[in-house]
C-alpha cells in the first residue's frame, strides 16, 4: 500500500511539474509551484529525510513561493513578452530532455550491489560532536566548511540584491509593504501568527541538535514571520544602512568563523571543536546563525532598497 501511495505522490509531482511548465499564465505557474513545494515536502518525509522536508516546507514552498508570487504579480503586465520557440525547437528540446531523463532513470535502475553510504561513519563519530542529529553533525562538524561558505553565499546574494537598487536609494529601505492600503484581516494575521512562529522557530533551532530541525529551518520561519509583518504594513522594512541590521546579518557567520579560528587554539584546528564543549558551541552557533539567516532571507525576499532614507 505504501507503494501505491508513493506512486500516487510521484505521479502527482510529475503531473504538477509538467503543468507548471506548460501553464500559459506565469502567475498560475507560480501558484502551481507553491503547490508542488507542499507536495515535495511530503515526498521528503517518504524518503525519511525529515530535516530536508522541514527545509523544503519552509523554503521551497514558503519563502520561495512568496518571492515568486509577488514578482509574478508585479510583472503581470509584461505577460506575453516573447514567444515560445518554434515547434521544431520544442520537439528537439523535448527529445533531448527525454534522453537525459532516460539516462538518469537508467542510472537509478542500476544501483550498486551495496549502496555506498556514510551513515555508519557519521553515526560513529557523532559522539565527538555531542550532537544526536546526524544531519546537524554533517552540517556543523564534518562539513562545517561548506556551511560556513554557504552563509557567505547568502550574504553575497543579499548584497547582489541590494546592488540592484538605484544609486539614490542606497542605504534606504526595501519597498515591501510600504504602499499597501491597510487591511484589517492581514494586520490581524500579522499580529497573531508571528508570536507562534517565533516560538516555533526557537523550538526548531533548539531541537536541531538532537532532532530534525536546526538553524536553517528556524531561521526561515523567523524570516517568514518578519516578512508577514512587513507585508501587512505592521512594521516597516528597515533601511539597509541600519547598523543593527548589518550586525544581525554578519553575527552568525562571524561567530561561526570566530569559533572556527578558535579551533586553531583550543581544538584540533580550523572548525574543530573541543569535545567537551562541542555541543554547546554548536548550539551557540546555530542560535546566532538562525538569527542571521532569518534576517538575510527576509531581506533577500524583500528586494532592493527603493525608498530613500529621509534625513
Amino acid at each position: 500500500m505504501a507503494l501505491v501511495f508513493d506512486i500516487g505522490i510521484v505521479s502527482l509531482l510529475i503531473a504538477i511539474g509538467a503543468w507548471m511548465i506548460m501553464a500559459r499564465d506565469t502567475l498560475v505557474a507560480v501558484i502551481i509551484f507553491v503547490v508542488y513545494g507542499l507536495l515535495m515536502s511530503i515526498a521528503w518525509v517518504r524518503l525519511s529525510a525529515v530535516d530536508v522536508a522541514l527545509t523544503e516546507a519552509a523554503i521551497g514552498s514558503g519563502i520561495t513561493g512568496m518571492l515568486l508570487l509577488s514578482a509574478a504579480a508585479r510583472l503581470r503586465q509584461t505577460e506575453g513578452a516573447g514567444a515560445r520557440p518554434s515547434f521544431p525547437v520544442c520537439v528537439a528540446a523535448g527529445s533531448l530532455c527525454a534522453l537525459i531523463s532516460a539516462g538518469l532513470a537508467g542510472v537509478v535502475l542500476l544501483p550498486a550491489d551495496v549502496a555506498p553510504t556514510l551513515a555508519p561513519l557519521a553515526v560513529a563519530n557523532l559522539a565527538d560532536t555531542g550532537l544526536e542529529n546526524p544531519v546537524a553533525g554533517v552540517l556543523f562538524a564534518y562539513r562545517a566548511l561548506d556551511t560556513l561558505l554557504e552563509k557567505v553565499v547568502l550574504l553575497l546574494a543579499l548584497l547582489g540584491v541590494w546592488s540592484l537598487g538605484s544609486d539614490r536609494a542606497w542605504g534606504g529601505a526595501p519597498a515591501l509593504g510600504a504602499y499597501v492600503p491597510p487591511n484589517d484581516i492581514l494586520v490581524f494575521f500579522a499580529q497573531v501568527l508571528p508570536p507562534i512562529g517565533i516560538v516555533f522557530a526557537a523550538y526548531m533551532t533548539w531541537t536541531g541538535a538532537s532532532h530534525p530541525g536546526g538553524a536553517f529551518q528556524g531561521g526561515t520561519v523567523l524570516a517568514v514571520m518578519w516578512l508577514l509583518v512587513m507585508m501587512a504594513g505592521v512594521a516597516r522594512a528597515p533601511p539597509i544602512s541600519s547598523t543593527k541590521v548589518r550586525w544581525l546579518l554578519v553575527a552568525g557567520p562571524a561567530l561561526f568563523l570566530a569559533v572556527g579560528f578558535l579551533g586553531f587554539v583550543i581544538a584540533a584546528g580550523f572548525l574543530a571543536y573541543p569535545v567537551d564543549y562541542a555541543k554547546a558551541l554548536i548550539v551557540l552557533i546555530e542560535i546566532a546563525l538562525a538569527l542571521s539567516i532569518g534576517v538575510t532571507l527576509a531581506l533577500l525576499a524583500a528586494g532592493p532598497p527603493e525608498r530613500t532614507l529621509q534625513p
Binding site: 484581516i185 492581514l186 490581524f188 497573531v192
Partner: peptide, 13 residues
C-alpha cells in the same frame, strides 16, 4: 483553521 479562515477572507476579497 486560523490561516484557512484568513486566507479564505483574503482571497474572497
Amino acid at each position: 483553521l486560523l490561516s484557512g479562515a484568513i486566507v479564505t477572507q483574503l482571497i474572497a476579497r
